[in-house]
Design a binder for these strands. Sequence first.
DNA 1: AGCCGGAATTTCATTGAACGGCACACGCGG
DNA 2: CCGCGTGTGCCGTTCAATGAAATTCCGGCT
Lengths: 284, 284
Amino acid sequence: MGHTAVVGHTAQVTNASGASPAPRGRRPAHGEPVIDRAFALLTAFTAARRSMTLAELSRASGTPPSTALRLARRLLQLGALERGADGRYVIGLRLWELASLAPRGHGLREVALPYMEDLYEATHQHVLLAVRDGAEALLVERLSARDAVNVLYRVGGRLPLHSTGVGLVLLAHAEARFQDQILARPLVHEPEGVPVSPAALRRTLAEVRRTGLAVVERSEPGPVVAVAAPVRGGDDSVVAALSVVVPAGGAEPRGLSPAVRATARALSRSLGSPRSAAPPGTGP
Amino acid sequence: MGHTAVVGHTAQVTNASGASPAPRGRRPAHGEPVIDRAFALLTAFTAARRSMTLAELSRASGTPPSTALRLARRLLQLGALERGADGRYVIGLRLWELASLAPRGHGLREVALPYMEDLYEATHQHVLLAVRDGAEALLVERLSARDAVNVLYRVGGRLPLHSTGVGLVLLAHAEARFQDQILARPLVHEPEGVPVSPAALRRTLAEVRRTGLAVVERSEPGPVVAVAAPVRGGDDSVVAALSVVVPAGGAEPRGLSPAVRATARALSRSLGSPRSAAPPGTGP
DNA sequence: AGCCGGAATTTCATTGAACGGCACACGCGG
DNA sequence: CCGCGTGTGCCGTTCAATGAAATTCCGGCT
């Protein structure tokens, strides 16, 4: 491969004055489209880095400083970015407003919230609502008591599919091809680090489909039990998972099953799921 | 460089039929930057139009179909847009995930929610949290009972500054220049359509600043009273407004004032407001 | 089936928007 | 005083973006 004739590209211009013509702009627009760049700037923000200076933004997104500045300014003007009191860049309110129209984000949350409140009043611990995005679950809403047991996940954050209540529900109802992909890779139960055998997981998923519930215990930050149920949409496919998380000590764990199932079904109904249609027995 | 002896490779052949050479690409890149275009596509979505076909998208954003398609495809790939089961475009989950990092959006909501829950348990009607963006207030969170009185505004939606509880609080604590701008234009009390005199509004704002509360009644969809209080941030400026909305009938309206004020202050404290610092008397 | 209107998609010559290296101003710590 | 990092302006180069027209696709209406 050495043959690339590396001869400094700079070179050949070399107008008469041989020395150093110092060509101003050399490698211009190359490869990556603008939108991708802009998006790279935005995705450089994470839960751990909610605000950045221009230089940080430039480095984190792999964009040269002058380009980063230009893009950041435009995003600023559009309201996708804002500057905090200290001048650092943060994700803008306008972007949040826009994103609140996402059907699988706030849209879903909007109809789910009242049902979640009902469940919350009953348990007074945690109520979770998640959807699947790629190989992970995305937490769309969470209601939590201030004095509730530790939670690992924040709203807008991602959860593993194979070691959480909502994750198992979503995985169990995904297409078979996708399940195979997930099962193919080595999996470990999240906080504890215990490996999960594909065969055992397969059995668990079948169980989840059969009972319409997923029950998961975890010990790590604090012993808790999660009970999760599928939420179905208009075309009867599973679009989300609803779950409660309570301390493992209580006598209730499985006693919550009917409540979770009922709430998930009520939510499904108001999303238009035919399977959960109102009075049973009145089939077409 | 134009002189490059263009000797059209393909082109001018234009077989004998001289009439119309039909040049393929005519007016190319002109004026508007790409990002603005992409953003125009996204902002074409509204609460009333949460999903669109490509043609609708193209018309609503003022972008030619072929350009709209190209951009939409890229946004699709980035996850900023998604296609529903029916093939219509909707705002994507990835964008929602990203936007959940907005400090003034979900960030604020995250710390406010427990406090709002407290207030909600007390009133069991509506609890609102809003921030100011431009000349309007943006509703960041809302807790509502299922059987509560009518609400006009949705989370992610905008409220007028001059005729809502949260709006008045935000306006009262905005910079004087900005207040003047707002007062300069003709204002009407929102749902009813009653005009508001600038002088009266000025007095109201002063009152709001003096008492640290805004109390607003509206009759239109149903008689309700809103009681709102300012929320202060780390630099002691007002960053948000917290409010309850209850039916006007009850004897409670003003009885809620202490609760709202106390909750707003507790929230301010956990946002780091020095004015609301914990035990009074222990100055630095 | 045949025709039609609109939507979605592809093609392609054209060019200005985007690019990024360089230089400079500024603030800060040694 | 001098180096270092950060933010910003400048500007020659060029390729990514553009949109009219052509083509394909699809559903409804004769």
